[in-house]
């Protein structure tokens, strides 16, 4: 073997070791645990037939989809605008909007409680205005707000990155052909951003599917898959069921990323 090929192989060694140790081995173990014992593969069936598991799966997928759609809408519009316009305070605004990237889920959850918790800002204001005290932090709504908060920066940055590379001549050419602002967004800008949307959206979806810290901070009884998995192996000590649910969660998130990669090209980060 040529020394150059040896060198290339050697470069892969650390990555292979890490992936084997921290991903492949636990993943295989997870599969064994999930399908071990008397129940065996029927546990996967149980995920779909037991109301508690099925509801958690469905509501997690639904929440992730709503979060993804909302994030793409808000982050997408803001990203296009910020990439195409320069004004005083532009840098500061981007910094503020991308600030949530620095926070772990627990902190995001804490902030949602401060906003919509029992003693939260929204509650106080609504009460001061003579209405009922509005509390939304400890429910799906709270989770939605939290996920939205930390998903927007990712979409914003991805969309801005691609929008900034968009050739301004394309827009000028479209204008010369008579296209107004709406037609330009529809025919030129959005098509160019589809790969960015697919990439950002799938990451956003997968993150929302698996996010745990925020949910844990808000309410331990909230019915999303990561919480159910946690309860299965802590409270119910049902390690096998927790493993089966983990496999399903992983598969759904991975399938979405894989689908996105198929449709959206190369911008999509890892599946799994």
């Amino acid at each position: 073997m040529k020394s150059r090929q040896l060198f290339s192989l050697a470069c892969m060694v650390p990555a292979v070791i890490v992936i084997t140790a921290f991903f492949l081995i636990p993943a295989v173990q997870l599969l064994f645990i999930a399908s071990g014992g008397e129940a065996g593969l029927s546990r996967y069936l149980a995920v779909l037939t037991t109301p508690r598991y099925r509801d958690a799966l469905l509501s997690t997928v639904a929440l992730s989809m709503v979060v993804t759609a909302t994030t793409l809408l808000i982050g997408g519009i803001a990203g296009i605008f910020l990439a195409r316009n320069r004004f005083p305070g532009h840098g500061l605004l981007v910094a503020i909007l991308t600030f949530p990237l620095a926070f772990p889920g627990v902190v995001v959850g804490f902030m949602v409680i401060m906003l919509g918790g029992r003693l939260g800002l929204v509650g106080q204001i609504s009460e001061a205005l003579g209405a009922d005290r509005i509390v939304f932090a400890y429910s799906m709504t709270g989770l939605f707000v939290g996920y939205l908060y930390f998903s927007i920066p990712r979409v914003l940055l991805t969309v801005m990155g691609v929008a900034e590379t968009l050739d301004n001549r394309l827009i000028e050419a479209a204008r010369s052909l008579g296209a107004g602002p709406f037609a330009i967004q529809r025919d030129i800008v959005l098509p160019a951003l589809v790969p960015a949307f697919v990439a950002a959206g799938s990451i956003c979806f997968a993150t929302a599917m698996g996010a745990f810290g925020t949910a844990f901070t808000l309410a331990t009884r909230i019915n999303v898959l990561p919480m159910v998995i946690y309860q299965e192996f802590t409270e119910a000590a049902n390690l096998a069921m927790a493993a089966a649910l983990s496999v399903v969660l992983g598969l759904v998130a991975w399938a979405i990323l894989a689908l996105a990669r198929l449709r959206g090209g190369d911008n999509v980060a890892a599946a799994g």
Binding site: L170, E172, A173, D187
Partner: peptide
């Protein structure tokens, strides 16, 4: 420019990558 009804050819051509040749020509 949208209302001047001018035809413009750029050095970089600026063809729309998401459209076919016929769609590019028919866009205006």
């Amino acid at each position: 420019i949208e209302h001047r009804n001018i035809g413009m050819v750029f050095q970089s051509y600026a063809l729309f990558p998401n459209m076919t040749v016929a769609e590019n020509i028919g866009y205006g």
